[in-house]
């Protein structure tokens, strides 16, 4: 059963349609990555799934009592906002010290409870935001451009960690990225978005799909090989097909 399911979703801002005819679902334990160029509606899709943005048409259904763990692209903590890692991890729960320490160890940023959030590097902040999200044992972990500001090996490490988390917690993972090669190979399923779903399927299928090539050009195949996801094991869900649709 799908944890989150969008059917025929349409979303617009000021009468400008940014997403249309989007059918999308997330099942337990899978890693789904949404890729697409800037302005393709990736962030809007996350806004819809979290409930920030309402649909103009279509439906959004979530399984009862689904817990979301959201890792934003950025948070509004600047120099005017004092916030320790400890305080941040208490949103919205009140975990004890041990739980917080463990979460920080899991994300690879231990002994940081007393650090000021505003003074962390991009990668450190990303880890702290991930730690906060996993403290609530989410059913769905959502990440918006999680590796922005990380270099390629940093990004690869980050996705490795996401995979490990998925194995340990059994949660579904939904990621939005324009960081194509690395992210795709860490996914079970890739959705290529450009106002509508252009193509979807396994990373291998999507990266060779003409729709994907049309959006991102060639030359991604070599980079994909840098970090080949081990697909020897099988997952319950099979999306080996590539759903094609028309391009303007």
């Amino acid at each position: 059963m799908a944890l989150i399911e969008l059917k025929n979703a349409r979303v617009s801002y000021d009468q400008k349609i940014v997403l249309d005819k989007v059918n999308f679902s997330v099942s337990r334990g899978e890693i789904v990555t949404i890729v697409g160029p800037n302005g393709s509606g990736k962030s809007t899709l996350l806004k819809v799934m979290t409930g920030v943005k309402e649909l103009d048409a279509g439906s959004l259904s979530t399984a009862p009592k689904v817990r979301l763990g959201y890792v934003p692209q950025k948070i509004a903590i600047d120099d005017a906002f004092p916030m320790t890692v400890r305080r941040f991890l208490k949103i919205p729960f009140s975990p004890n010290r041990k739980v917080m320490e463990e979460a920080l160890v899991t994300v690879g940023f231990p002994n940081s409870l007393d650090r000021q959030i505003g003074e962390l590097s991009g990668g450190q902040l990303q880890r702290v935001m991930l730690a906060r999200a996993i403290i609530g044992s989410p059913d769905v972990l959502m990440l918006d451009e999680p590796t922005q500001g990380l270099d390629q090996s940093g990004a690869a490490d980050f996705y490795q960690m996401i995979e490990t988390l998925r194995e340990e917690m059994g949660c579904a993972v939904v990621m939005v990225s324009h960081d194509l090669h690395v992210v795709m190979s860490a996914s079970d399923r890739v959705i290529c978005l450009n106002g509508h779903i252009c193509c979807e399927g396994t990373p291998a299928v999507v990266s060779t799909a003409p729709e994907y090539r049309a959006l991102f050009g060639r030359g991604t195949k070599g980079a994909l090989a840098l970090y080949q996801h081990d697909h020897d094991h099988t997952h319950e869900h099979g999306h080996e097909h590539s759903e094609l649709c028309d391009h303007e």
Binding site: K47, V52, G69, Y70, I75, I77, P92
Partner: peptide
């Protein structure tokens, strides 16, 4: 207070814990 803090930080993060920013 707690809702305000979440709302200040990020609207989607707030929504993920049931708060409308």
């Amino acid at each position: 207070w707690d809702k305000f803090i979440a709302a200040v930080l990020n609207p989607e993060l707030a929504a993920s814990i049931g708060v409308s920013a």
